[in-house]
């Protein structure tokens, strides 16, 4: 298990390779479908410090509010490929170092990560109560009214958030490897 502290620089991120198990600590922000669309249409400046050298988490958490503020109850990853249209531009513009989600992303994001120095960390889909335990504190929420609770930007402090590097900053993708191997087996089974 490799421990990562956010923010993280390009040199450190390029050390990571496909298959590495990582535990991430620091402050990161959730952004999913509506948030990505909003960023691309508005290029907001206030997002920049949340993303630079940090992590974007594709997640729409279940959040409870009490007198002490917000608490993440259940916060697993959502399917990342829906952000394929937006992510390469966001990586180039804002410089996040880690994209966290599930299911992997496409070749355009892989190329953007290779160019800028970023990796994709796959969290365990559906393991939302487990993952919520590593979210220590919710610092802030942005655009809650406009985007709704699942799609707002939740700025959260995490400790030992675990995942697997499935796309690295050198063009490596576990998703491409598994797809190719399974395609071969599919063809054999279709005979």
């Amino acid at each position: 298990m490799k421990h990562i502290q956010l923010p993280i620089g390009e040199t450190d991120i390029r050390i990571l390779k496909v298959g590495d198990e990582v535990a991430i600590s620091g402050v990161m922000v959730t952004a999913r479908d509506a948030a990505h669309k909003y960023i691309i249409e508005n290029w907001p400046k206030w997002v920049a410090p949340l993303l630079k050298d940090r992590a974007i988490y594709h997640c729409g958490p279940v959040v409870r509010k009490d007198e002490n503020g917000y608490h993440a109850i259940s916060a697993g990853p959502t399917t990342s490929i829906r952000e394929e249209h937006y992510e390469p531009q966001i990586i180039a513009h804002y410089g996040p170092r880690i994209i966290i989600g599930k299911g992997g992303m496409g070749d355009a994001t892989l190329a953007a990560m290779q160019k800028s120095g970023a990796v994709y960390v796959h969290a365990t889909g559906g393991a939302a109560s487990f993952i919520a335990r590593s979210i220590r504190k919710i610092h802030n929420v942005y655009m809650l009214d406009e985007l709704g609770p699942p799609e707002a930007f939740w700025e959260m402090e995490v400790e030992d958030f675990t995942g697997v590097v499935t796309m690295d900053a050198h063009g490596g993708s576990l998703h491409n490897i598994v797809r190719k191997a399974s395609e071969k087996r599919l063809h054999a089974l279709l005979q």
Partner: peptide, 8 residues
Amino acid sequence: NSTPLCQD
């Protein structure tokens, strides 16, 4: 803890 298995 009676928390959602998956947030979705």
